[in-house]
């Protein structure tokens, strides 16, 4: 039960090199809000901790070279992401999802890379990132690769990252022209609770008012965020029907059960919150003033 060594690499390459050397026995630490708990409760006993805090270039927020996306460095905190003006305008549902995580103390420390790679099912940002088709840039000994958030999250606390890879940034595409979006977090108990259900929705309407595109991602109801492409496809070309979508998603999902709600209850909440999120997203389509994040 010896204590882990602590590495402070200054470049991504150095970090990857340490991870590679330890072959799964090392643990990356970013904001540390999750890792500290895992260590305290002895859920993990790594031989080494690899802190990313001195690694250069992981804290930037900016437009990608092509200008079609926002790049969030892995060490950008939830608080920074939530209030970043560019992210707020380019992908408001993502900013909203970061804004409703936990509490200010957590948001001041927790990072964009951390919340994705922790892969906790009861989380907010992953659903929003999944809805907007965000990808992560993973860096390993062989260089960088792009992993869509969809492919990154595999199961409870399980990701597609190799032991010797880190996430260096998350690339968030801009919300399509004219589209509206929303992320709604529903806590069934205290306002301080993690989500019982979280719904991310993106809606685009055709000039005739019919649905040109709808994307719905459900968080906290299964091991990973749930997206149902068939339902999204079926909605296109028809008048947008939030309640109908709510019913359809409620039928389609197979929710888990925890202290925040039974499977039955979560299914009902999917019904309600899909409708509400789609409605909120449609409201924002017109380019009117953005309502504050709801919860």
């Amino acid at each position: 039960m010896s204590q882990p060594l602590v590495f402070f690499p200054t470049t991504v390459a150095e970090a990857v090199e340490v991870l590679d050397r330890y072959g799964g026995e090392a643990k990356v630490v970013a904001g540390g809000t999750a890792v500290s708990l895992m260590l305290q409760h002895r859920l993990i006993q790594p031989a080494a901790l690899v802190s990313l805090q001195r690694v250069d270039g992981l804290r930037e927020v900016g437009r990608t070279e092509e200008g079609t996306a926002v790049r969030l460095g892995a060490l950008v905190t939830h608080a920074e992401a939530a209030r970043h003006p560019f992210l707020r305008s380019a992908a408001p549902l993502v900013a909203d999802a970061f804004a409703v995580v936990g509490n200010p103390q957590v948001r001041a420390a927790a990072t964009v890379g951390g919340v994705l790679t922790e892969a906790d099912y009861a989380s907010d940002p992953p659903a929003a990132l999944r809805a907007i088709d965000a990808v992560v840039i993973a860096q390993g000994p062989a260089g960088a690769r792009i992993i869509p958030v969809y492919d990154l999250l595999l199961g409870f606390y399980e990701t597609a990252l190799a032991d010797n890879e880190i996430v260096s940034s998350v690339v968030v595409p801009l919300l399509p022209e004219g589209a509206g979006s929303a992320y709604l977090k529903y806590s069934s108990r205290s306002s301080e609770d993690r989500p019982c259900v979280g719904v991310a929705a993106v809606v685009r309407q055709a000039p005739d008012g019919s649905c040109a595109e709808v994307r719905v991602v459900l968080g906290a109801i299964a091991a990973v965020p749930v997206r149902v492409p068939e339902l999204e496809a079926a909605a296109v070309g028809r008048p947008l029907d939030p309640a109908g979508l709510g019913d359809a998603y409620a039928e389609a999902v197979d929710p888990l059960e925890d202290v925040r709600g039974s499977a039955w209850y979560r299914r009902e909440m999917v019904r309600v919150w899909v409708a509400r999120a789609v409605t909120a997203a449609r409201h924002r389509c017109t380019g009117g003033p953005q309502p504050p994040p709801a919860g």
């Binding site: 108990r189 205290s190 306002s191 301080e192 609770d193 993690r194 202290v259």
Partner: peptide, 10 residues
């Protein structure tokens, strides 16, 4: 984190 007690907002 699992047993809730009321916060200001509750």
């Amino acid at each position: 984190a699992d047993y809730m007690v009321p916060s200001l907002d509750d």
